[in-house]
Computed example of a mutant assay.
Amino acid sequence: MKKLLPFALSLLPAISLALEPQPATPHPPGSMADAFMMQLDSNKDGKVSKAEFIAPHEKRFSQMDKNGDGSVDRAEIEALEKAMRERMQQMRQQHSAPAGKP
């Protein structure tokens, strides 16, 4: 169990992308660095502070910690996994729907 939590926490950036609808951009970022800066440089000063880096992770942790006890247990991780699967299924259905139909 002790090894599961660090692994789950390392997935937070990917989880945030999967759970939160991202605004449509006409041109996707040109590089991983562009995507990183666009997502984390909240004050747009051209650099990411430790606080800017940690803020979305803290938010995700709070969202995962459904019972608010300050830790994420297996049931909460499984609930997150289920939500991610459902979200991915919805996205697949939206992308496979014929043009002009929801």
Rank of each mutant, 00 (worst) to 15 (best):
K82E: 11
F61S: 06
R74Q: 14
G68H: 08
A14K: 03
P26C: 12
Q94G: 11
Q39C: 10
L5A: 12
K59E: 15
D69E: 04
A51G: 10
M1I: 10
Q94I: 04
Q93E: 11
D69H: 03
M1H: 10
K59R: 14
E86R: 14
L4C: 13
A33H: 12
A24W: 09
M38S: 13
T25S: 13
A8H: 13
H27G: 11
K101C: 02
E58P: 00
I15R: 01
S71N: 07
L17T: 02
I15M: 06
S42G: 08
P28K: 15
A14S: 01
M84S: 10
R85P: 10
Q39H: 10
R60F: 13
P6F: 03
P6L: 09
S62H: 13
M88Q: 15
P23M: 01
E86S: 12
L4K: 14
E86L: 15
P28I: 15
E81Y: 09
G68S: 00
V48Q: 02
S31V: 05
E58V: 11
Q22N: 05
D65V: 09
A75K: 15
F61Y: 09
G68L: 06
H57G: 03
I77F: 13
F53R: 10
K44R: 13
M32W: 06
K50N: 14
Q63E: 15
N67F: 00
P21A: 00
M32Q: 08
Q39W: 05
S71Q: 13
M88P: 11
V48L: 02
P102E: 07
V72T: 09
A83G: 10
I77E: 08
H95F: 00
D45V: 01
P26F: 11
